[in-house]
């Protein structure tokens, strides 16, 4: 027949998953949560800590995946947003004795609101202005963290950050806190999963693929873009609120501009626009170097180089590679 099917691969080939696949994603999340609940038994304090750190990073990467992978926006302040959440939690819990749960909610709210305030003027002009505005914001936040000693402790940071209770159960222990992190990560992942398969997700995909056409169909592109960015930022805030009690000490260095770049690379490495991609990306970015006992900056170089190669060979990242491999194995063309 006449169907010269346009088979060109787009930079981010991820649409709304098919109904069968959706349950697959949810089941994977559930199975992952169960495995991670039991995984650290006998792993020791450090191993458990690395697993928790993986999940916390995954939350921030998940948010950035929404911003970059689904809405196609470059945010260079994900680490700064994480810093906002972490500092807010650290300051309010250590200095004012506020409950961690309140801080967690406030961290999300604050980063969401800041996302709106930054996104509105930038997105009014052009999508790539958001990159520059977030770049500037990232630097500004870093300056404040470093300079306002009375509030943030400057380069010495804030230490002795307490871990929260869970209905009276103390979560001081690495394993217990890890399980707490597993539950929160699971909840946040499911919320995102729900959002992506709701009409919102369809609108996000549409505005990434063709914003002008989307607008002509009534999609308020400005609102959706802003929401994607603000929600993505809020995830960083949540991640920060968990990061502070996990590490029990924070200083400005993990929230610098380089770290924001690093988080973006994790999104791409895992597969931007894939719901499970962030977990793979954070695994490669955070867990692997710990297990391989790689020196920090050397690993960064290797990681960045791998991401560049991935971008050339398979812009869909590891998730895309796996999908291709699966298609090969089952003998199906990479059609869907």
């Amino acid at each position: 027949m006449t169907a010269p099917a346009t088979r060109e691969t787009l930079p981010q080939t991820r649409s709304l998953p098919l109904p069968g696949f959706i349950d697959g994603t949810l089941l994977t999340l559930l199975a992952g949560a169960v495995i991670l609940w039991f995984a650290p038994v006998g792993m020791g304090r450090y191993g458990t800590y690395v697993l928790s750190l993986w999940l916390v990073t995954s939350i921030a990467v998940m948010g950035l995946n929404l911003t970059l992978g689904y809405a196609g926006l470059k945010s260079l302040a994900q680490a700064a947003f994480m810093g906002l959440g972490a500092y807010l939690t650290a300051i309010l819990t250590t200095k004012y004795g506020v409950s961690w749960y309140v801080c967690f909610a406030l961290s999300g709210l604050l980063t969401f609101a800041v996302g709106l305030v930054l996104g509105f003027p930038a997105l009014r002009v052009k999508a790539h202005y958001l990159a520059f505005v977030t770049l500037a914001f990232s630097t500004l936040i870093w300056l404040i963290m470093r300079n306002e000693q009375w509030l943030t402790g400057g380069v010495f940071g804030i230490s002795n950050i307490n871990r929260p209770d869970f209905f009276g159960i103390k979560l001081f222990n690495a394993l217990e806190f890890h399980r707490f992190v597993v539950v929160i990560t699971f909840i946040l992942a499911v919320v995102l999963w729900w959002m992506i398969r709701s009409p919102w997700g369809r609108a996000f995909t549409a505005l990434r693929e063709n914003p002008i056409r989307a607008a002509s169909l009534g999609v308020d592109t400005r609102l959706y873009t802003l929401l994607a960015f603000a929600i993505g930022s809020a995830y960083a805030g949540f991640a920060g609120a968990l990061y502070a009690p996990l590490v029990e000490f924070i200083d400005p260095s993990p929230f610098s501009l380089s770290q924001s770049f690093f988080l973006l690379l994790m999104v791409v490495a895992g597969g931007s626009g894939y719901l499970l991609g962030p977990f793979i990306g954070a695994l490669l970015g955070v867990v692997l170097p710990e297990w391989l006992r790689f020196a920090g900056s050397l690993y960064l170089i290797i990681f960045a180089a791998i991401v560049m190669l991935l971008l050339i060979a398979c812009p869909q990242g590891m998730s895309g590679l796996m999908e291709r491999a699966y298609a090969k194995l089952t003998g199906k063309g990479a059609g869907r």
Binding site: T6, L10, T13, R14, S15, L16, M195, S198, P199, W200, R202, A203, T205, A206, E209, N210, I212, R213, A214, S216, L217, G218, V219, D220, L223
Partner: peptide, 28 residues
Amino acid sequence: QVFPELTVRENLILAGQEHEGTMLSRFF
């Protein structure tokens, strides 16, 4: 101007979804 990564049905649902309900109903 169609959305190549969405199915035919998804394309049409998208064309209609912003005309009814609210942002909240489109989420929940």
